[in-house]
């Protein structure tokens, strides 16, 4: 599996404007829904919120990986967002979240879903990757950082 191959420049929000959890999720889903006409924006947000209710997906170090299942998709759908100011995401370490990977998986593909979550969190575990993502100039640069980080894991 490769996270880089699931991303395009169009699904990267390099300067997020949202400051709270709900609008951050909405901002990320807006971007995905613009690219994919088959996706229902409101449902995506509500699926993510359902998951957040079980406990924040903000896993600390400024990272959040909101995720959920959608029955209508065939493969993984993912997007990326960056907020320089930070979003109050009720993260596990109580610090604001800056880097967001949003992930949707088909309902029947729990294995792929879980593997993608593990891979994304491994990529972001590296502090250098996190600071490079924060400093990246724009979507193209962000993709490069992710590609490089993923290669170094292999």
């Amino acid at each position: 599996m490769s996270i880089r191959s699931l991303l395009t420049e169009d699904v990267i929000v390099s300067e997020m404007t949202a400051r709270d959890k709900k609008s951050a999720l909405a901002e990320l889903c807006d971007r995905l829904a613009e690219q994919r006409s088959d996706l229902d924006r409101a449902r995506m947000v509500s699926v993510l919120l359902d998951r957040e209710r079980l406990g924040s997906t903000g896993i600390g170090h400024g990272i959040a990986i909101p995720h959920g299942k959608l029955p209508e998709i065939e493969g993984l759908v993912t997007g990326f967002g960056r907020s320089r100011e930070g979003v109050d995401f009720a993260s596990m370490d109580d610090c604001p979240a800056h880097l967001f990977f949003v992930l949707f998986a088909p309902t029947a593909a729990s294995r792929v879903h879980l593997d993608a979550l593990a891979l994304i969190s491994r990529i972001l575990q590296n502090p250098d990757v996190r600071s490079e993502l924060m400093e990246a100039s724009g979507p193209d640069n962000i993709l490069e950082v992710i590609e490089k980080a993923e290669k170094s894991l292999e």
């Binding site: 079980l54 995720h67 299942k69 998986a105 729990s110 879980l114 593997d115 979550l117």
Partner: peptide, 18 residues
């Protein structure tokens, strides 16, 4: 952990948990 429908681990095999 309580397994809720909204969690990624729901409907997964134990062996598939990473």
């Amino acid at each position: 952990y309580y397994i809720n429908e909204a969690s990624a681990a729901c409907d997964a095999r134990i062996a598939d948990l990473p």
